[in-house]
Design a binder for these strands. Structure first.
Lengths: 340, 340
DNA sequence: CCCACTTCCGTAAACGCTTACGAAGCTGAT
DNA sequence: ATCAGCTTCGTAAGCGTTTACGGAAGTGGG
């Protein structure tokens, strides 16, 4: 042990570069900033008891050395070991591309913050499992039984979606709907159609409300509505196709998700309706897969995941309930044009 | 140190249950099996120098206590730190449900085996990144540029798919195709259709070959073919719909994937064709999402992921190239019936 | 009967991090 | 000048695992 201590000491004091296989460790940062590893850790994790000047110096050298804390070590040390269970909303039997993206970000942020996911039953549709320490509920429709259930369980949880009175984080769906309407209206479109999978989620409902309010404000009437079975491209395709075959011919379409939008574009193509010259289409999400061409409402998935983790930690520490709405923005690409 | 050593000793000797927050550690197993933690580790990891009888006892107590090695600790200790990059095949711009499932399993097995994924650019379509230590290529079509590229790079890689001369693992697609054909033929169907997204992957080509050979052997002629744009349900829908609207009416359909099959089922429904009374449909993959109703060719995704990790480790250790074909089986459910 | 060799196993260091504890330095009140 | 109390920081233990090293049996040959 005396030997070990000396070795560690040596390593800390020695000016020679460490031989840890290239990895920059907390020791390197400590050495470079002329402090101890304890101080580095405290500075980096925002713990108290560090002189502001010291903190600044540590942070600076850390970024300079491109220090990236080792996750395994952090997890092992933290032993925060919260088993986070993810549950996909009822009515979302499938794992949407959106959720896949979210999940990636989410587990990154979770690991970064020293927490660990023990169990990620992504496919599970039903109510959250008993043996988890915390829950993340993905999506919610207004009377989601999982919410009452999670509350009854008394375990910390956060909802990715929107529901009054619970800790939740969601994009500003209503504002997004409004943005879409205003964009279409500004381009001169008055024959409007909203394609949505409405009953399934609060998000869809909010998007519809924002869209509808803006439309009513401008035109004193509502737009038409085509309801898709679920949120898949195929459901969007069938919804629009059926609508067009029934004889109506909108010039502006707001699809409640990029997936629906992609189905709509295919349907339009199959029926000889050209985008954007015959009809303009606005999506929602800004998924990278379809996104390169589509005019859409962009939401920041990474921020969504990050804030989910923040709220989750707050929940774990029993802090006051707080909810977040994340801003969205319209990105105008090739599928909208002025009405001819 | 004397203090620490004694503490550890105490913990090891003491009969009292450990207070590690419920987690069963290697110490618990050691204590229960009356050996040291070193021996437990060696026994569990198949290292040499353990008496068979001792090994047996350790293994027994480990399973009895439901010992589950801590990943973080294992990673930290192992420090094998291989940066594995995943690359999705050209022509598969999207992350299919199949790959999502695969990915989950894959990273589990990777972590279990002490390796660590540093970078998983799942969405990346192009050629593998320069800074990875190893690659996993997902899917391949016959002239996949990524294969030549990976070989040129000289870094270990394994292909999930099939290609001569490289380390690869794949389900027995050809046998699967044959199974589907034989099933349909056995039910008396002779007016057959194959729905596929053929040019995109070797897997689809192999499935088609197996199917076609069995069909030719029985009927002395090929089945009809409907080509879908990609592998999505929507593409399957459009392919079948177009085919049926063109006037042909098959009684047995083999869709090259469950996703295609699900689109086919919707198309049939939309056109008033009943499954399975009017037409029988066989899928491929056995995805849990669509799988509860669909007659399909089952492949073992977990095994696929496990073997991928095995081959990856072999590649990392420079062992001889070896390829695997995993068995598939037909599971008969509600979408096939005897020809009326 | 002893020694070399092998087989089996226990000990403790190491992986990179967090954090409890305590030491050192400073402030201001006495 | 002294001391309590605060702030700031260094030290080292500990998270659960793997593995190098060496010790203790057991085996066989001289």
């Amino acid at each position: 042990m005396a030997r070990a201590a000396r070795a560690r000491q040596d390593r800390q004091r020695s000016a020679a570069p460490r031989a840890t296989g290239g990895r920059v460790t907390i020791h390197d940062v400590a050495q470079a900033a002329n402090v101890s590893i304890g101080t580095v850790s405290r500075a980096l994790n925002g713990r108290g008891g560090v002189h502001p000047e010291t903190r600044r110096r540590v942070l600076a050298t850390a970024t300079e050395l491109a220090y990236d804390p080792d996750r395994a070590a952090r997890e092992l040390s933290n032993r925060r070991s919260v088993a986070v269970a993810l549950s996909v909303a009822h009515g979302y039997p499938r794992l949407t591309p959106f959720f896949v993206l979210f999940l990636q970000r989410f587990s990154d942020h979770l690991a970064d913050s020293g927490l660990r996911v023990q169990d990620v039953p992504t496919g599970s549709d039903g109510l959250p499992e008993r043996d988890a320490d915390a829950f993340v509920l993905l999506g919610a429709h207004p009377d989601d039984p999982r919410i009452a259930h999670a509350e009854r369980l008394g375990r910390p949880f956060v909802l990715v979606g929107h529901h009054p009175g619970v800790r939740c984080v969601a994009p500003d769906d209503e504002a997004g709907g409004r943005l879409a309407a205003e964009h279409l209206l500004r381009l001169g479109h008055e024959s409007l159609l909203h394609v949505s999978a409405m009953p399934h989620s609060q998000a869809y409902a909010d998007r519809a409300r924002g869209f509808d309010e803006a439309v009513r404000a401008a035109l004193q009437r509502s737009s038409a509505l085509a309801v898709a079975d679920d949120g898949t491209p195929l459901s969007g395709y069938r919804a629009l196709r059926a609508h067009l075959e029934a004889g109506s011919c909108p010039t502006g379409i707001f699809a409640a998700s990029d997936e629906l939008a992609s189905g709509c574009m295919t349907a339009a193509a199959d029926l000889g309706v050209r985008v954007p010259s015959d009809v303009s289409i606005v999506g929602f999400d800004d998924l990278p897969e379809v996104g390169t061409r589509l005019t859409t409402i962009r939401q920041d998935i990474d921020a969504l995941a990050r804030e989910t983790v923040t709220l989750l930690r707050e929940a774990l520490q029993g802090e006051r309930i707080r909810s977040l709405r994340l801003p969205v923005s319209l990105v105008s690409r090739g599928t909208t044009a002025e009405r001819r």
